[in-house]
């Protein structure tokens, strides 16, 4: 393992705070059934647009649903969605990058051109195209976004892999007669992990914004499921009626999580360098 020294600088401490925020919100999402004071989907039109109160600490939305409960339950899809995007994109991106860097030759040439072509598609546009083909929903949006992030990860990891595999220790393993697959799995990829981790963390932030945008457009998570992106969208008409809470709270949480992941990615990048 790469030793990570405990940060003593101010910048280091913001990294710890960012990690704390992320872990806390993940925990909230996991414990939603126990933490949420109400059923997030329970409609009570008599209670619409309630202000802060003991029963509804953050008030209610246009259908009288408890906002706090919806935000707590929303943490699940809002965090799990980007996580799936990142895991899928990272696994695919690393596999493609390492294979093409290791093999070189025509495989590398073909993969690099495909990555270039994929780069030309904005992630959200690609997602909209795929949703148009396969229908709306979180799964489809996640897969489409993951594919659109593969080029970013693949390009970075490929150039790092090229640098790493030129190191004498890799040559030594080749001379020892260790197979290419074993060298990549046991030596090359583990040595690239710090970089991969930092990049994945940064990607999480982008994925979260993009997924929220897709849900906002009504192509991702479907109402009435609680999701922060959906809440920003469904809170729109209420803003005009003078009740901005729903969009505001959900939007604020997205900002906080994205900022936390960006900070964390930056710090990870520094610590593991």
């Amino acid at each position: 393992m790469t030793a990570i020294a405990l940060p003593r600088t101010a910048a280091g401490r913001t990294g710890i705070v960012a990690l704390g925020v992320v872990l806390l919100l993940a925990l909230v999402g996991l414990l939603a059934p126990w933490l949420a004071p109400h059923d997030p989907n329970e409609i009570n039109l008599m209670d619409a647009f309630q202000g802060n109160s003991a029963t509804h600490p953050l008030g209610t939305d246009a259908s009288g649903r408890d906002l706090l409960s919806r935000l707590i339950w929303g943490a699940r899809s809002s965090l799990a969605g980007p996580l799936l995007v990142v895991v899928l994109a990272t696994v695919l991106g690393v596999a493609i990058a390492v294979a093409s860097a290791w093999r070189g030759g025509w495989l590398d040439a073909v993969v690099s051109r495909c990555v270039d072509v994929l780069f030309a598609f904005p992630g959200v546009l690609l997602a909209i195209l795929v949703v148009a083909l396969f229908g709306a929903g979180l799964t489809v949006a996640v897969v489409a976004l993951a594919i659109s992030y593969v080029p970013y990860i693949a390009r970075l990891v490929r150039s790092a892999a090229l640098r790493e595999q030129a190191q004498p220790y890799i040559t030594a393993l080749t001379i020892q007669g260790v197979g290419g697959f074993a060298i990549c799995r046991r030596h090359l990829i583990p040595n690239l992990l710090p970089l991969i981790l930092a990049q994945s963390t940064l990607t999480f932030g982008y994925a979260m914004v993009d997924l929220a945008a897709i849900s906002f457009l009504g192509l991702g998570v479907q109402p009435p499921t609680a999701d922060w992106g959906v809440m920003v969208s469904s809170g729109q008409p209420s803003i005009l009626q003078g009740f901005p809470q729903e969009s505001l709270y959900a939007g604020a949480l997205i900002v906080v999580v994205v900022a936390a992941f960006n900070l964390l990615g930056d710090r990870l990048d520094e610590w593991t360098r």
Partner: peptide
């Protein structure tokens, strides 16, 4: 046939 390299710092995997 085996070989020993010049640079002892980069010829070993630092994680192993």
């Amino acid at each position: 046939i085996q070989m020993v390299f010049q640079d002892p710092y980069s010829s070993l995997d630092r994680r192993q």
